[in-house]
Design a protein around this nucleic acid. Sequence first.
RNA 1: CGGGGUGUGGCCUAGUGGCUAAGGCGUCUGCUUUGGGAGCAGAAGACCGUGAGUUCAAAUCUCACCACCCCGACCA
Length: 422
Amino acid sequence: MRYSQLFGKTSKNAPSDADSPNARLLEQGGFVEHVMAGVYSWLPLGLSVLRKVEQIVREEMNALGAQEVFMPSLQPKEYWETTGRWEGVDVLFKLKSQTEKEYALGCTHEEVVTPLAQKFTRSYKELPFAVYQINTKFRDELRAKSGVLRGREFRMKDMYSFHTNQADLEAFYARALEAYVKVFARCGLDVKVVQASGGIFTSKVSHEFQALTESGEDALIACEKCSFGQNSEIATLKEGDACPSCGGTLKKMKGIEVGNIFDLGTKYTDAFDFNFMNDEGKQERVLMGCYGIGTSRLVGAIVEAYNDAKGIVWPKSVAPFDVHVVALKSKDEETQKLIDAAVSTIERDLAAQRVEVLVDDRDKGAGEKFADADLIGIPLRLVISEKTLAANAVEWKERGTADAESVPLDRLAALVVEWLKA
RNA sequence: CGGGGUGUGGCCUAGUGGCUAAGGCGUCUGCUUUGGGAGCAGAAGACCGUGAGUUCAAAUCUCACCACCCCGACCA
């Protein structure tokens, strides 16, 4: 991609009303555009990151054996009345058609997935299974805040599992928990698996996944060594106590909730009278679990965790591009032709290796290009200029490190591929 | 929903009762420049959030409303 052609621009001035780092950097860098409180447009750069995050989520859910579906956001009032949540959930957006028929805008999908699963499930032989989707959610938050961390419209992966018995549900729940740990690790986040309300003191299990950042709004008591933690709302342990999981020391920490998993038991299957026939020919209630990851929030959490004074520092796994080629202009026409040719060669060679490249081909000064490269935060910056070309080389600099080195043009593609794997 | 703050060209700001609303960034034209947001000349771009009111006169004062941001409450 040529930067001159990319839709969406960086801004020299940070937006005045964006206070949290994720909002400021994502807007200033041209990743998202604020539309109204809690609602953003995602521009090509931001969408690229969002898709990478969602692809990681997708791969790990698929590895669990869950199957992807896609359910409607526009939902019938009747389903929500069936579960008693039409009146019970204050964040539920409700709307009326021109014929006064009422609908809900999905803030979650138990009301849709439960009857869906019910339709295709009669026998114990069809259980267990899990389905998931990555979709837009709507929540009528009284106060949207912190950029993409708490929106009224946002992206979420939600998975639902269906089981014949508690042990089977718990086994899947444990596997889902491990899959979540993998997702967040692949996104570069340091995440604690936190017992949350409904946690250790009730029969129902709930875990939050808290990405540790300075700006996190949730308070935790968590282990220095392992991933164990408790949300401060329910914590019975305190700072200085020994971790019940590994014996390490517990400390106060702050986190952003990027995922949450629940043992729903029969709460929704009761509402829809969702049974299966067991191996004795008797009807039994289906058990259910649900597992959410806010993917757009996850993008924001990554920015909160990875930024410096100059901009974002994307982890390789979710960066909008792998490589940012900065082509500096030369006043000498012949030299400029050589630079252009070298850039085209780099583009072609890297594309052949499936490396995603953003080329800053603008007729701008070096300072502006470097400032933008720092702001956008692509993990590897390659500068090609009159100076580097004289040595048949490019300057290699990784975002987040201070050192730059010279790399010969003829070995560049191989070195980039090697670096990407590292 | 309670409290606080802020609304001025695309972005960041100045202007706090008085000439035609000022500057920086960005954009466009031409020239110049090319390793950390460089320079010169010119141009376009603003019903100063909306409505009502006070006044000879309102971006500026008053009231209402709207929007956004922050704190709190809330967060199936």
